[in-house]
């Protein structure tokens, strides 16, 4: 990986093109969100989707533990949140609620997709990456990619459980699945195009 970075950094064409892209990104996200680090549209989209997933997971977890909290959802026919959230498949190994697992997943995903985490990977134009932060960046990229792949795998199992085993669809769960899929797609595209690319080290 280090060799690839070094060899790529010697190529002036792509690097200068990328630097201009990253220099343009802050302008797109700074307006209206001055308190957030400027990271670009894709990272911001992953974070917003992660925040939605976290909110829905909190709601599902509360509804799991508090029987007085009813999910705003149809309870007739195929769309039936109660049937899904009270099914045997709503517990992993019979002890760990899927809702809690989803909540834990999204707490992690929100953190790792936050603009501050992305900023470590994409410093603003003129920023520099030390060797230490370069290693951290690689770790974050790996953690982000592995977590969304694992999350997407679990979502596929949950879709199988809903469609095949339970025969009912929980809209709230499905909205979290869609968010997870979108985050997965964005991270895969980002990793595919930006993996191993050197970060901007020059000024301006």
């Amino acid at each position: 990986m280090a060799d690839r970075k070094a060899s790529t950094s010697r190529r002036s064409g792509p690097q200068s093109a990328r630097s201009s892209q990253q220099a343009a990104a802050p302008a797109a996200t700074k307006s209206g969100f001055g308190f957030l680090p400027s990271v670009g549209i894709l990272p911001l989209a992953t974070w917003l989707l992660s925040l939605y997933g976290l909110g829905a997971s909190i709601y599902l977890t509360i509804a799991h533990y508090d029987t007085h909290v009813l999910l705003v959802c149809s309870d007739k026919g195929v769309i039936n949140c109660a049937e899904v959230t009270t099914s045997s498949q709503s517990m992993v190994f019979g002890v760990l609620p899927v809702a809690v697992l989803g909540l834990a997943f999204y707490v992690f995903i929100v953190a790792i997709n936050s603009p501050w985490a992305w900023r470590l990977q994409r410093p603003a134009a003129g920023g520099q990456l030390s060797a230490w932060s370069g290693n951290l960046t690689t770790s974050i990229m790996w953690a982000r990619l592995i977590s969304v792949v694992v999350g997407m795998g679990f979502v596929l199992y949950l879709i199988y459980a809903e469609v095949i085993q339970i025969g009912a669809i929980c809209l709230w769960c499905t909205s979290v699945h869609v968010a997870t899929f979108l985050i997965f797609a964005l991270i895969v595209f980002d990793s595919s195009f930006n993996w191993g690319k050197p970060q901007p080290t020059g000024r301006g």
Partner: peptide, 20 residues
């Protein structure tokens, strides 16, 4: 690579629905 990965996931979802 990226598009194929995402499409593979979508294909799995479609397979599940078709099986059902």
């Amino acid at each position: 690579v990226a598009g194929g990965t995402v499409l593979a996931v979508l294909a799995l979802v479609i397979v599940i629905i078709v099986v059902k």
